[in-house]
Write a protein that binds this DNA or RNA. Structure first.
Lengths: 118, 118
DNA sequence: CTGAATCCAGATGGATACTG
DNA sequence: CAGTATCCATCTGGATTCAG
């Protein structure tokens, strides 16, 4: 007790673990892009996202969506249209990612210029 | 021209690409944790980070640090101590990730409670 | 101490074809 | 349309050993 430095380091380790927790959820080549797509349109269908996120395959989209659903970031709703369509939506919890997404968008733009644009 | 919907969708695709750009840089199991470690201490040595980021191997740390350096997020300084030590520091550009790191830390904490804590 | 080198299992992800 | 199934190459990352 009283060892401020050790305390600080413990605090820091906790923080790092928290960041890791976030990244575990948002990991995978496409997850953030998918959330970003759904987020901006409010509600989005499978084929729409497939089109929004350039380069993703339906196999990957399906897999990533499932993981996001398990982590309670999005909800899946089957619509009784012909043929069937499926809607994805952010949960309240998923919605809390908005700030991060927005920041990442801005940062990505600046970074691209920094690296390539010179 | 005048097709507002198509315009909006193009804008959206750009945004998604920007998020992808960010994630490309921050990808890898440990990158954010490493940045987080350096960020909080201002300057950090190899062995310190190795200790901060639980579970990482020196092989991975070395690799991820190199990538971060290439992307100009950190700088590497060799100190002429005996034995040699190496210091890592955020660049000005890397520093701009602070907000994102901070948000991810907070979000990760909330998320963990949401999922496990229940 | 700070890596680089090697070995290797398992995860990731693309292409393609198929189903309800 | 919204997936699932299969095949397969590549990537990831851990363990361990070695080097300056």
């Amino acid at each position: 007790m009283g060892c401020k430095i050790a305390e600080f380091q413990q605090e820091q380790k906790k923080r790092i673990r928290s960041v890791q927790d976030s990244m575990d959820v948002l990991n995978g080549k496409w997850k953030i892009a998918i959330i970003s797509s759904i987020c901006c349109f409010g509600t989005r269908r499978f084929s729409d996202i497939l089109n929004d996120v350039e380069g993703i395959s339906n196999r990957m989209l399906s897999k990533e969506l499932k993981e996001l659903e398990v982590n309670q970031l999005i909800t899946r709703t089957v619509l009784a249209t012909q043929p069937i369509t499926v809607q994805y939506e952010l949960t309240e919890h998923g919605d809390t990612l908005q700030t991060i997404i927005s920041n990442l968008t801005d940062w990505g733009q600046v970074h691209r210029q920094k690296i390539t644009g010179k």
